[in-house]
Structures are given as structure tokens and as C-alpha cells.
């Protein structure tokens, strides 16, 4: 009996994984966005960049048409496992990465690799997600944050350095990703079925497509610079 259940679950698992795949594609930027603004770093932070100019990261591209930092997700999807934790580092008085995505209640771990102190201050706007403000001394212990409700582009900021921002989109499912600099993205383990695939860029706006996943799917998007 026991072995029968085991066999059945194994079969179901294999079948389940066969009926799932990766959703991949590329997001291209159309048009030329306004030039990024130079960040007026203070001396302590500027020193960490060897005199190199640091700019805002509103439009992150590979220079060949790809658009990074787009949040890609299956709207209204259910399930999907979270990875262990999302890590955001503070390096050179900047948050790395600038844009990330996470699942509700998944730990978002903030590190401080700087010789400078920061305060880590998430400012959610959705009811049920708690605003917090924590000190983090140079090379201080990591801080973990979790959020109970889905929220797009939940802002993390540092008030010591008024240019430091990071945006985490929180989903109540596991089917989301952030596009790389070349515009490529990959949402893994999507069960077969019909979905609405949405791409959202903080400044460029939102585009969407109906897709059908059959052991995977591919969808490319174009976002226009505003």
C-alpha cells in the first residue's frame, strides 16, 4: 500500500514536471530615454567609486536594445515555490540590485558591504505591509524583512543618503522574474496552461500578452521610453 502511494506520487510528480516549463523572452526598449541624472554623492560615498560618476538607474539597458530591470510576472497565477531569500546589498552607497522581486513572506535580506552606515527603510503603501526603519552599521549584520501582502515596486530607501532606493515587487505566487540588462528574462517551472504575462517597468509602464504554456513558452516585449 505504502509503495503504491509512493509510486503514484512519483508518477504524478514526473507527470507534473513534464507539464511545466520555462517562460522566457526578451524585452526591448524603443526610443531614447532622457539621460540619467548624476547622483550628488557625499565625500564618504563618492570615495567608494574612485571618482567615477554615479547616475540614477531609471532605464538600465545593454546599449543594444535590451531593457533590464523590468518585472515580469504571470498575473493571477497560483503556487510556485519561493527561492530561499532575496538578497539586496548596499555597496558604494547604492542598493544592488535596484529592482528585484520576491514572494509574500519570503525573507528579503539586506546586507551592508559599505564602510559607511545606512538606515534601511522600506516604505510600503499596501495595507498589511509594515513600514520599518532599521539602522545598519558598517559591515553590520544582515537585516531580514518580510511582507505579507502583494505589492508592486515596494520602495526601500536610506534616509542618510537621499539617493539610495531599491524597489522590490512582492507577489503572492512564485512566477515572477526581473529582466537582465540585455532584456532577457526567465520564469521557471510554469505549469502548462493559459496565462496573462505582464511586463512592468517603473518608468516605461506596463505591457501584457496572453500566452499559452505547453512545456514552456516564449514571449518578447517592447517597452517605449517615456
Amino acid at each position: 500500500m505504502k509503495s503504491l502511494i509512493l509510486t503514484l506520487t512519483t508518477v504524478a510528480f514526473v507527470a507534473g514536471s513534464a507539464a511545466a516549463g520555462d517562460v522566457t523572452g526578451k524585452i526591448s526598449l524603443k526610443g531614447t530615454p532622457a539621460p540619467e541624472k548624476e547622483i550628488p554623492m557625499d565625500p564618504a560615498c563618492g570615495k567608494l567609486h574612485d571618482g567615477k560618476k554615479v547616475t540614477t538607474r531609471f532605464y538600465v539597458t545593454d546599449g543594444a536594445g535590451g531593457l533590464g530591470d523590468c518585472v515580469v510576472y504571470l498575473e493571477g497565477a497560483k503556487g510556485g515555490a519561493a527561492t530561499k531569500e532575496v538578497v539586496i546589498d548596499q555597496k558604494g552607497c547604492e542598493y544592488l540590485p535596484y529592482i528585484s522581486s520576491a514572494q509574500v513572506n519570503q525573507p528579503i535580506r539586506v546586507l551592508n558591504s559599505d564602510p559607511v552606515l545606512h538606515n534601511v527603510h522600506p516604505t510600503p503603501t499596501v495595507d498589511g505591509n509594515k513600514e520599518q526603519n532599521k539602522a545598519q552599521l558598517p559591515k553590520g549584520a544582515p537585516l531580514d524583512f518580510t511582507f505579507a501582502k502583494a505589492e508592486k515596486f515596494l520602495r526601500f530607501k536610506c534616509d542618510v543618503h537621499p539617493w539610495m532606493f531599491s524597489y522590490v515587487s512582492i507577489f503572492d505566487h512564485g512566477f515572477h522574474a526581473v529582466s537582465a540588462k540585455d532584456g532577457s528574462y526567465k520564469i521557471t517551472g510554469v505549469p502548462d496552461g493559459k496565462y496573462k504575462l505582464v511586463v512592468e517597468h517603473r518608468k516605461g509602464g506596463k505591457v501584457e500578452k496572453e500566452i499559452e504554456v505547453k512545456g514552456g513558452a516564449k514571449a518578447d516585449f517592447t517597452i517605449e521610453a517615456k
Binding site: 532622457a34 540619467e36 541624472k37 548624476e38 547622483i39 550628488p40 540614477t56 531609471f58 516604505t123 520602495r155 530607501k157 537621499p162 539617493w163 532606493f165 518608468k203 516605461g204 509602464g205 517615456k226
Partner: peptide, 11 residues
């Protein structure tokens, strides 16, 4: 909001 590009990234 789309055209607002400020290093202070206000709400």
C-alpha cells in the same frame, strides 16, 4: 510619474 526622473525619487 513616468517622466519624473529625480535622484531623490519621491513617492
Amino acid at each position: 510619474n513616468a517622466v519624473r526622473l529625480d535622484t531623490r525619487d519621491f513617492k
